[in-house]
């Protein structure tokens, strides 16, 4: 049943966001602190456990992979609802502050990524993965 996979995903997101809200309450902010991160960790544990118990047949797995595949289209929709006009009409100070923060933070990535054990570049996309994205 394809919905089982989607339902597991849904429960992970809801529990993760609740945990993020509780952590926010704990540190005293009215915001979600780490909800999506907790949800991802829950999903990793839940799917690992389900696989070990034989509860992850192909149809169930497809219920998760579908939403993973929808990620890029959803991000394109997200781009189409950004307040781009608001960003461009914010005036020179807002534009300078936003651009400077982005550029300087990006420039710091190589320095901070040197800390700890090195991480291997991901292998090139396989033909099947590429076909899925096109």
């Amino acid at each position: 049943m394809i919905l089982y996979g989607t339902a597991v995903l849904a429960v992970c997101l809801l529990v993760g966001k609740a945990l993020g809200g509780l952590l926010g309450l704990l540190v005293g902010v009215d915001a979600d602190v780490g909800g999506v991160g907790f949800a991802m960790i829950l999903l990793l544990f839940a799917s690992g456990w389900m696989r070990s118990k034989g509860l992850l047949p192909k149809p169930t797995e497809r219920g998760m992979l579908f939403w993973s595949g929808m990620y890029i289209p959803i991000v394109v929709a997200m781009a189409a609802i950004q307040n781009v006009k608001g960003a461009l009409t914010g005036g020179p100070m807002a534009i300078t502050a936003g651009l400077a923060a982005t550029a300087i933070c990006m420039a710091l990535i190589p320095a901070i990524a040197k800390i700890g054990a090195p991480s291997e570049p991901l292998p090139p996309l396989t033909a099947a993965e590429r076909a899925e994205e096109d």
Binding site: G16, L43, L44, Y71, I74, V75, I81
Partner: peptide, 15 residues
């Protein structure tokens, strides 16, 4: 493109 489906799809990519 709202935050609900966006977060849902982000969590799905962690699979």
């Amino acid at each position: 493109g709202g935050s609900m489906l966006r977060d849902f799809a982000i969590v799905a990519t962690a699979y």
